[in-house]
Design a protein around this nucleic acid. Structure first.
Length: 273
DNA sequence: CACGAGACCTGTTCGC
DNA sequence: TGCGAACAGGTCTCGT
C-alpha cells in the first residue's frame, strides 16, 4: 500500500491522532511481541525486544517511505513495503490475522504492525543514518529546484520511469505516483533521463509534487483489500486504468512493463520523442 | 543502479 | 464452478 502519501498519512495520524485513535507521542513502550521474526531486520529479535522496553516515543517523522520514530535512546524505523500497516489498537485479547509485531504501551493500548505479505521490515538503531543514509532528496525538499533536477537527470541515461522508482534518486515515489506524475508531465515512461530538457524537468518536478500533494490531501490511495485510509484511487489518471479512455483526450490507456513493474500511460498525451 | 530474473510472501482476480 | 496463472503499493541479491 505505501508510497510517500500513504506513509505520510499514517505518520500524521500516529503523531496527531485521528478519530478513534489518540496521538501516541509520549507513550512508553512496556513490551514488544514479535510474531514473525524476519520482520525485525536489526538487531536480533531478542535484543530488539529487550532494548525497546521502557523507551518513550518522542517524535514521529517520515523519510522517503520509512516511518521514523525517535525513542528515548534509539530510533525505531519501519518500512511497510507492499502490504504493511501501522495503527493504534485500544485493546485486544489475541493477535489478529497478519499481526507481525505488537508494541504494548505502559498506560493504554497497543501499536500494531500488521503485514499480510510479510515484506515489511523494522529496525531499532542508535544511528538512523545507517538505515536512511542511502536515500535521495525528498521531493518536497526546498533545495530541489527544476534546474537541480535537470542536472540530476543529465547525469543518468536511464528510462525516466525506472529512475523515479530509485529511492537513491528521489525518496518516496512508488509505482502509482511515478505513473501519475509522468502523465501529468506529459512524459513517456521510456524517455531517457538525459534527453529531458530543462523546461520538461521543471514541469516534471511540479508534476511530482502535485500528484504527491494530491495523494496526501486524499489521505493516500486505497486499492483492493489493502489499506482503507484514503480515496486517491478515485482520481487516478492512468494507474490501473488500462483500456479505459484518458481523462484528457479519450485515447485508451496502455500498459507496458518497465523494469518488471507495470506501467500505465496515455500514448497520445505521453509521446516518446 | 546496467539490466533481468528470482526471491521474499499472501491473497485476489483473471482466463480458460 | 474449478483451477492454475497472473498480478499486487517494494526492495534485495545474484548472475551476466
Amino acid at each position: 500500500m505505501p508510497e510517500l502519501p500513504e506513509v505520510e498519512t499514517i505518520c500524521i495520524g500516529l503523531r496527531n491522532g485521528i478519530p478513534e485513535q489518540p496521538s501516541i507521542i509520549g507513550n512508553q513502550i512496556s513490551e514488544a511481541h514479535v510474531l514473525w521474526n524476519r520482520t525485525i531486520k536489526e538487531p536480533t529479535v531478542e535484543k530488539f525486544v529487550s532494548k525497546i522496553q521502557g523507551q518513550e516515543i518522542i517524535e514521529i517523522s517520515r523519510r522517503g517511505k520509512f516511518i521514523v520514530m525517535r525513542l528515548s535512546h534509539d530510533f525505531l524505523i519501519i518500512h511497510l513495503r507492499m502490504s504493511g500497516d501501522l495503527f493504534y489498537r485500544r485493546n485486544f485479547e489475541s493477535p489478529a490475522t497478519h499481526d507481525r509485531v505488537i508494541f504494548k504501551f505502559k498506560d493504554d493500548g497497543y501499536l500494531v504492525f500488521n503485514d499480510t505479505r510479510k515484506f515489511g521490515r523494522i529496525w531499532l538503531v542508535v544511528d538512523d543514518n545507517e538505515v536512511l543514509g542511502g536515500l535521495g532528496l525528498e521531493p518536497f525538499d526546498p533545495s530541489l529546484s527544476g534546474l537541480e533536477l535537470y542536472k540530476m537527470l543529465q547525469r543518468r541515461s536511464t528510462q525516466i520511469k525506472k529512475l523515479l522508482l530509485e529511492q537513491s534518486f528521489l525518496a518516496g515515489i512508488g509505482n502509482i505516483y511515478a505513473d501519475e506524475a509522468l502523465h501529468l508531465a506529459r512524459l513517456h515512461p521510456l524517455t531517457l533521463s538525459n534527453q529531458i530538457d530543462i523546461d520538461s524537468a521543471e514541469v516534471l518536478l511540479r508534476s511530482i509534487r502535485s500528484v504527491l500533494q494530491d495523494g496526501i490531501r486524499h489521505h493516500g490511495a486505497s486499492i483492493d483489500w489493502v489499506y482503507k485510509g484514503g480515496d486517491f484511487q478515485n482520481y487516478f489518471k492512468v494507474y490501473k486504468r488500462t483500456g479505459l479512455p484518458c481523462r484528457q483526450c479519450s485515447t485508451l490507456i496502455e500498459r507496458i512493463a518497465v523494469g518488471q513493474r507495470s506501467t500505465h500511460f496515455c500514448p497520445n498525451c505521453q509521446k516518446q520523442e
